[in-house]
């Protein structure tokens, strides 16, 4: 088997209270070129993983603040090291909250402005395809997928926001049917309708909506979430090809910003 045909290996971190881990596992399994395996929060390391997903849920009961306890799980040191080496890390919903608490992503997620749990479809707009998580999307693409959260209200101070804009780190926004980021289309009060952001290195990405629930035709969720996983798989395969080496493993570790060039 050449590196190009070896499956892309996803690791799904399971915390006590994760509840979207199985959905993410099933989502990955719908891609013929990908495999998934669970990583336990008490693990102190992992090998043979091309991309890590922190799934949604209520890790540690959301005690204190969402993600505040999970960020100190033993596996988070390994995730931090993996991200530091340029590995792809996707945080969905509670996973996004954990990455923000861990300082791997800028800003924070606070209580929804409406003070209620929000569970509904939202229209998103892909603000940049220059990330390993959206490179398979078309610029301005508007995936329609679900949110389900109580603390999805993204916030960051003005200086941080300005820096993120300058670095093209705002990846997804909530928009209305016409594609405009109106207040009415914003499910949680997030500043500037932000639904997903990446780090400066572009290899860590957090989003509140759930792409893993929209991957299969014939099911209620549609297939609009596939572009996220497709992008990640394409990125890992492209990085392997670029490195030219036969082995997977480190050869598949992307150079941090390589995902944008498509």
């Amino acid at each position: 088997m050449s590196a190009a045909t070896e499956p892309v290996r996803f690791g799904l971190v399971v915390f006590p209270g994760s509840n979207c881990d199985t959905d993410a596992f099933q989502a990955v399994a719908t891609f013929p070129g990908a495999t998934a395996r669970y990583l336990w929060h008490k693990d102190t390391g992992f090998d043979d993983i091309d991309a890590v997903i922190l799934p949604g849920g209520f890790s540690y009961g959301d005690y204190l603040r969402c993600g505040a306890i999970a960020r100190f799980s033993p596996i988070m040191d390994a995730v931090r090291g993996f991200a530091g080496d340029g590995g792809l890390v996707l945080g969905i919903c509670n996973g996004f909250q954990i990455l923000a608490e861990a300082g791997l992503l800028p800003g924070a997620l606070i209580r929804n402005t409406c003070l209620t749990f929000v569970c509904r479809y939202v229209n998103l707009r892909v603000e940049t395809t220059a990330t390993p998580f959206t490179s398979a999307c078309t610029p301005g693409e508007r995936p329609r997928i679900v949110v389900k959260h109580n603390e999805g209200n993204y916030t960051a101070d003005p200086e941080t926001l300005a820096r993120m804009k300058a670095n093209d780190q705002i990846v997804l926004r909530y928009v209305d049917a016409a594609g405009e980021p109106t207040d009415a289309a914003n499910p949680n009060g997030a500043v500037e309708s932000i639904a997903g952001v990446c780090n400066e290195g572009r290899n860590v990405f957090g989003m509140m909506p759930h792409p893993e629930n929209s991957v299969e035709d014939g099911l209620a969720g549609g297939t609009d979430g596939r572009c996220i996983f497709r992008s990640m798989i394409d990125h890992v395969l492209a990085a392997r090809a670029a490195h030219g080496a036969g082995a997977g493993g480190d050869a598949s570790r992307p150079a941090a910003a390589a995902g944008g060039a498509r």
């Binding site: 606070i110 209580r111 929804n112 003070l115």
Partner: peptide, 13 residues
Amino acid sequence: TPKQGILDPQGAT
């Protein structure tokens, strides 16, 4: 307490 300048949805309500 929420930082000054950070939206506080509960406080506002």
